[in-house]
């Protein structure tokens, strides 16, 4: 996979998720991080660290990105969320503007 097309998301615990830029840009916050003019370190390195998001949640978020793209292209399926994750996931969603 071309490095320019992917982005590395790092959780609080240091787990790395490499996903498509297109998918990551479902989040308005990540989109801004990657497209903002000037050279923030995120743009230069192609990776974003989220010290306040746990691995479990970040994984769920990555899953959501891909599901969301599919949903937008017309494939309507359910996105399952475990009840114990709901609260944290919502806070992360607010943070990521998703």
């Amino acid at each position: 996979m071309n490095k320019d097309d992917t982005v590395k998301l790092i959780s609080a615990e240091g787990f790395e998720f490499v996903i498509d830029k297109k998918a990551a840009m479902v989040s308005q916050t990540i989109r801004n991080m990657l497209t903002s003019p000037g050279s923030f370190s995120e743009t230069q390195l192609g990776q974003v660290t989220f010290p306040e998001i746990s691995t479990t949640i970040l994984e769920k978020i990555c899953q959501y990105f891909y599901w969301s793209m599919q949903y937008a292209s017309g494939k309507e399926t359910e996105f399952h969320i475990e009840p114990e994750l709901t609260l944290e996931l919502m806070m992360a969603a607010n943070y990521l503007h998703t």
């Binding site: 801004n32 991080m33 000037g38 050279s39 370190s41 660290t49 306040e52 943070y95």
Partner: peptide
């Protein structure tokens, strides 16, 4: 730093998180 063209070392995530 931004006005001084010195933004390259800054972490967007960190700044965003702080403002947030």
């Amino acid at each position: 730093e931004i006005y001084n063209h010195n933004a390259s070392g800054l972490s967007f995530e960190e700044l965003y998180r702080n403002a947030y």
